[in-house]
Simulated scan of single mutants.
Amino acid sequence: MTFPAIGKLAPAFTLQNQAGENVSLKDFKGKKNVVIYFYPKASTPGCTTQACGIRDTKTELANLDTVVLGISPDNPKKLQKFIDKYDLNFDLLADEDHAVAEKYGVWGLKKFMGREFMGILRTSFFVDKNGCLRYIMSKVNTKTHDQEVIAYIKEHF
């Protein structure tokens, strides 16, 4: 799998959020920068750390005209439980058939504890207000992801 090209329009998508409402990338065009972060599974330790970091920096991100969308293969019901449990304050989107993950080149072979399987490769995509893909963060540290996102936006957007 390959990532979409930087400098081109980000691949379009419409997915259901935790409340079963459709959210499209085009909803933000002309209004907000969008950080799309793909994560493997709701309520797992690394994914929880990453999501809570975004939660805690939502105001700062909003001040930078940026919205964050988390995408995983979980269903909307599981995403709502994740939001409720950790008081998350941003949309999580259900990509149950991993079609969007494939469009973005983040569905691939993973290795964990000696086992190989297909899954989400933790990656973040930065999309500007025009819908153009500006940056891909492929080496994501769940503990510092939120601060790295803010630093990049401050410097480059």
Rank of each mutant, 00 (worst) to 15 (best):
N17P: 10
G20Q: 06
G20N: 06
V23A: 02
V23D: 15
S24L: 00
D27A: 07
K32S: 13
N33Y: 04
Y37W: 10
T44D: 13
P45D: 12
G46C: 03
G46R: 04
T49V: 07
A51W: 01
G53I: 05
R55S: 08
R55L: 06
T57W: 11
K58W: 07
K58F: 12
L61F: 07
N63M: 12
L64N: 13
D65M: 02
D65A: 01
L69E: 02
L69G: 03
D74R: 05
N75M: 14
K78Y: 10
K81N: 10
F82L: 06
D84M: 11
Y86K: 09
N89Y: 07
D91K: 02
E96L: 08
E102F: 06
E102T: 11
K103P: 11
V106N: 03
G108K: 15
L109P: 14
L109W: 12
K111Y: 06
K111C: 07
K111L: 13
F112Q: 13
M113A: 13
G114W: 04
G114E: 01
E116R: 13
M118K: 15
I120P: 11
I120C: 07
I120Q: 00
L121Q: 11
F125M: 11
F126Y: 10
F126N: 02
L133F: 02
Y135P: 04
I136L: 00
S138A: 14
